[in-house]
Design a binder for these strands. Structure first.
Length: 256
DNA sequence: AACCCGGGGGG
DNA sequence: CCCCCAGGGTT
C-alpha cells in the first residue's frame, strides 16, 4: 500500500478554494465556516463571504447584524457573531500569539490556522482525524492522545500536510460508514479496520419540534427583513437577544 | 461530562 | 427515521 504522503499527493482535495491561500484571515473564516457544516455547503458560501469581508478591518467596519445576515442559512449564526468580534479584536490589537484567545476559536481551529497559514507544526484533530486515529488505536481517545497519535501516524508529514492528509483520509476513505480500508495507506497499522462500535458522542436531540427550531424560525424572519416583533415567538426572540443575535434587525430588538 | 447551538444532506 | 457534519462555549 502507498504511503500516506503518496496517497495524499494523488487523492487529496487540493482544489478546495480555501486551501489555495495561506492568508490567516481567509483560512480562519473557512475553518469557522466548516464548524459542523459540510464542505459542500461551505464551497457555495465561502467565496462570496470572503470576497465581501477580505480582511478583519472590512468586517469590523460593519454592524454585526450585517455579518449575521451575510452568513445566511449556514447555521449556528453565533459563529458569524463571534467572527465579527474576532475581526474587531484583530483590527484593534492585532493577532494574538495564541489564536484560541479569539472568540469562537478553540483548540482545533487555533491549531488548524497555525498549521495552514503560519507553517506551524501544530497537530489539530477534528471529526475526520479523530475517527482515523481512534480506529487505528481501536478505542476512543482524549484530545492530547489523539493529537499525539496523529503526529505518529502522520510521519514524515508535518504541519499543514499532515493535517490535510489525515483529514482527507478520514473524509474519503475512513468514513463513518463503509470505510474503504482496502485503499487506505494506514490500514497496516490499524487496529480496527472497520467501524469502531458505538461511538455515540454528540448525539443531537430531534430538531423537529425543538426549541432550536423555534429559534431558527425567528432567525429566518429577522434575516428576511424588518418584522413586527409582536408576531414573533417571544421566548425564542429573548433567547436570540441573550446570544447577541437579534442585532440582525439593525437595532437591538425591543421586546413587547 | 453533558448540553446547547441551525440547517441540510445521505443512507 | 436516524446519523453526521473540518467545534466551541457554558454549566
Amino acid at each position: 500500500m502507498a504511503s500516506l504522503a503518496a496517497w495524499y499527493r494523488e487523492h487529496g482535495r487540493h482544489d478546495l478554494p480555501w486551501r489555495l491561500t495561506t492568508d490567516r484571515w481567509a483560512v480562519l473564516v473557512s475553518e469557522v465556516m466548516l464548524h459542523q457544516t459540510q464542505v459542500s455547503r461551505v464551497l457555495e458560501a465561502w467565496p462570496g463571504f470572503i470576497g465581501r469581508y477580505p480582511t478583519p478591518p472590512t468586517m469590523a467596519a460593519v454592524a454585526p447584524g450585517e455579518v449575521i445576515r451575510a452568513w445566511g442559512t449556514l447555521g449556528y449564526p453565533r459563529r458569524a457573531r463571534a467572527l465579527w468580534e474576532a475581526a474587531r479584536v484583530v483590527s484593534e490589537r492585532g493577532w494574538p500569539d495564541d489564536l484560541s484567545e479569539l472568540p469562537g476559536v478553540g483548540r482545533y481551529t487555533a491549531a488548524a490556522v497555525a498549521a495552514q497559514a503560519d507553517g506551524a507544526d501544530a497537530p489539530g484533530v477534528e471529526a475526520n482525524i479523530r475517527r482515523v486515529v481512534e480506529r487505528i488505536a481501536g478505542r476512543q481517545l482524549g484530545d492530547a492522545a489523539a493529537e499525539a497519535l496523529s503526529i505518529e501516524v502522520g510521519r514524515p508529514l508535518r504541519g499543514r500536510d499532515r493535517l490535510l492528509a489525515l483529514m482527507d483520509v478520514g473524509a474519503l476513505l475512513c468514513r463513518p460508514r463503509a470505510p474503504k480500508c482496502d485503499a487506505c495507506p494506514l490500514s497496516a497499522r490499524c487496529k480496527t479496520r472497520g467501524v469502531l462500535p458505538d461511538d455515540g458522542r454528540r448525539r443531537q436531540p430531534r430538531y423537529e419540534g425543538s426549541f432550536r427550531q423555534r429559534r431558527g424560525r425567528v432567525l429566518a424572519a429577522l434575516r428576511s427583513g424588518p418584522q413586527g416583533l409582536s408576531d414573533l415567538d417571544a421566548d425564542a426572540l429573548r433567547s436570540l437577544e441573550a446570544d447577541g443575535l437579534a442585532v440582525i434587525t439593525g437595532t437591538t430588538a425591543r421586546l413587547p
